[in-house]
Amino acid sequence: IDGEGWDLSQVEPNIAAYYTVDDVLYSMPFNSSTPILYYNKDMFEKAGITEIPDSLPKIAAVGDGLLEKGGAGEVISLGIYGWFFEQFTSKQGADYADNGNGRTAAATAVDFDKNGAGVKTLTAWKALADQGYAPNVGRGGDAGLADFSAGKAAMTLGSTASLKQILNDVNGKFEVGTAYFPKVSDEDQGGVSIGGGSLWALNNEDPARQNAVWQFVKFLVSPASQAYWNSQTGYFPVTVAAHEETVFQENIAKYPQFETAIDQLHDSTPQSAGALLSIFPEARQIVETEIENMLNNSTSPEDTVAKMADSINKSIEDYNLLNE
């Protein structure tokens, strides 16, 4: 990038922010996504609900209407997914981990147990489950998609990258709507952080190979490549100019649901970029295990968050000790 003077402003700033530390871009974004709310427009219309809920309490507020009038078997098929917990934290404008979400220095502990975000999230989550609106549909990002695509659940949460799969699975049985990922409470002002992946290059001290890698990276993030990738998946373009490509514009016109994730990204800020954490895969497993225990065994949100924090902090401490 520096050698060629490649213009970094070509990359969506709220996407580049995730991979940037101390003004250095550590990897090139490629397949980026945010989580969104999917809803069954037919069920909402039958229930006479015209305002799509933008918070967990508002989801609860329309629950009875969807079950009694809309024909829903479930109000929301909410998969137990560690990434969703992180997004609920981000929507509150709170940090997941200390040291500026691991961005001013390596994280030494989680922060969601101290700033109240964890308890707030799980209290609202448990309330939906206790009221019968969000039954336990399993763990993982795709756990809630089957019930939604089958026409059983009125809503689900999922990555925007799942959009094409959902549209194919629904296959016209009902109209699929998309909306922003819900807030934990109505007053929250935070945004979402991205998921997906990015492109890294190894320093093998071979200039010819490094140049070949750079040429390939530029091809993958070119407007044409990103517009095509978006149209075939649901991941949104990381390159701003991709919006000017014909394939992008035709896809948005045919599937306006794709626009939701892009608007949501633009309405977030770089401050919602999300945490950098050395042991994220393990942390997400811990979060999912404890949420599952809470829903199955009626553990309190406070005890659940305490167990999460204790287990994750031990893993962070071990990692930092081994990687000083």
Rank of each mutant, 00 (worst) to 15 (best):
E4I: 07
L8D: 01
P13M: 01
N14G: 05
I15S: 09
A16N: 02
V21G: 04
D23V: 09
S33G: 07
P35K: 10
K41E: 13
D54Y: 13
S55A: 01
A61E: 15
V62T: 12
V62K: 10
L67C: 02
G70R: 07
G71D: 06
G73S: 05
L78Q: 01
W83D: 13
F85W: 06
G102A: 11
R103G: 07
R103H: 14
T104F: 05
T104L: 12
A107D: 06
K114A: 07
V119L: 06
T121L: 07
L122P: 00
A124M: 06
L128T: 05
F148A: 04
S149G: 09
M155A: 14
S159C: 07
D169G: 05
V170Y: 05
G172S: 07
F181K: 09
P182H: 03
S185D: 11
S185F: 06
Q189K: 14
G195A: 12
G195Y: 10
G196A: 03
G196Y: 08
G197I: 06
A201V: 15
N203V: 13
W214G: 08
W214Q: 13
Q215C: 01
Y228D: 12
Y228N: 11
N230G: 11
N230I: 03
P237T: 12
P237D: 10
V238D: 00
A241M: 11
N251T: 15
A253P: 08
P256F: 11
P270G: 01
Q271H: 11
G274Q: 12
P281S: 08
E282A: 14
E282C: 03
I286Y: 10
T289W: 08
E292V: 10
N293R: 12
M294T: 00
S298P: 01
D303E: 13
D303Q: 13
V305I: 09
K307C: 00
K314R: 14
E317P: 05
N320G: 10
L322K: 15
N323C: 02
E324V: 10
E324Q: 14
